[in-house]
Simulated assay, not measured.
Amino acid sequence: MKLVYVFDAYCGWSHGFSETLRQVVSRHPELPTDVVSGGLFTAARRVPIREFGYVQGANAQIAELTGAEFGEAYERLIADGSFVMDSEAAARGVAALRQAAPDRAAELATTLQHAFYVDGLSLSHAATYRKVAEQAGLDADAVVGAFEAPEAQDAAAKDFHRSAELGVTGFPTLLAVDGDRVTVLAHGHATADEVDRRLANLS
């Protein structure tokens, strides 16, 4: 059995799930964890953030429920409403980091969300992946190269397709996958204890 975490790096609720994910992964070192980008803001949804009028209200709700931090640099980044969240670019970055350190994919996914939601760094810029890679002790040149490579678009498209194949309809979703059996452990929000109880019911 393995865990499959389907999220979007530009999803506030996924950011709110970061601490739960960290705890679950640390409690279950025996379970490999795949990280899949879901593609929340693509095609017609790739528009200036001002068109999503609910963002600040939702973020306040997420912070209250999960304790997740939304930093001042992030607030400045989105203040004028012109910032565009591009989930394909973020998925390319997730794929580049995942390629550099497959066994640290969950950790790197949460680090990437911190880079956006706390440090206010765009997930469309190569410099963001350089910084994340350097902080994680990875080969930053290799990560940036992978982010900018044509193959990264294929990796993003494969992630979006896998998310759909798994039947995921919202982010974040944490799944337990055992052969053909797929069980939802968390959708939107859950504590690590709640996930543990659901895992225990599978054994």
Rank of each mutant, 00 (worst) to 15 (best):
V195E: 05
E194I: 09
V177C: 03
V182I: 12
A152P: 10
R181V: 09
L174K: 09
H161M: 03
A142K: 15
H161T: 14
G179W: 06
T173W: 06
A140T: 14
L166T: 07
L185C: 04
D139N: 15
V168G: 02
K158W: 06
G137H: 13
D141M: 14
V177M: 00
V184E: 08
A136F: 14
A192R: 10
S163K: 02
T173N: 00
L185K: 06
H161N: 05
Q153R: 13
V144T: 15
V144K: 14
P150E: 05
V168L: 01
G170K: 03
R197V: 11
H189T: 07
Q153L: 08
V143N: 11
A192S: 11
D154N: 11
G170C: 03
D159P: 12
A157D: 10
A149H: 13
A190K: 05
D159R: 07
A146R: 14
A146Q: 13
V184H: 00
F147Y: 15
A140I: 08
A157S: 12
G145V: 11
D193C: 06
A146T: 14
D178Y: 05
F147D: 04
A149S: 13
A146Y: 12
V182D: 00
L166V: 02
F160C: 03
E151A: 15
P172F: 04
D196T: 12
E151S: 15
V177R: 06
T173E: 02
Q135K: 14
G137R: 15
V184M: 03
A186W: 04
D196A: 07
R181N: 00
V177W: 02
A192Y: 11
S163G: 12
A190I: 04
V182P: 07
S163Q: 04
G188R: 10
R181S: 02
L185R: 12
S163E: 00
L174D: 06
V182W: 06
Q153Y: 06
H161K: 09
A136N: 12
S163F: 00
G179M: 00
H187W: 03
R162M: 01
V143C: 12
E165K: 10
P150W: 10
A192N: 08
A142S: 15
V143T: 15
L174Q: 05
A156E: 05
E165A: 07
A155S: 10
S163W: 01
L138G: 13
A136G: 09
A157P: 09
A186K: 09
P172L: 00
G188T: 08
H187P: 00
K158I: 01
A156S: 09
Q153T: 12
A176F: 08
H161A: 11
D141F: 14
R197G: 02
H187V: 03
T169A: 01
G188H: 11
V143K: 15
D139Q: 15
L166Y: 02
A192F: 09
D180T: 12
A186P: 12
G167K: 04
D154I: 10
T191I: 09
V182T: 14
E165D: 11
F171N: 01
D180P: 02
A146I: 10
A157V: 09
H189D: 00
F160R: 05
Q153I: 10
G170N: 04
D159H: 11
T191L: 09
D154W: 05
L138H: 13
A157M: 05
G167R: 08
G188I: 05
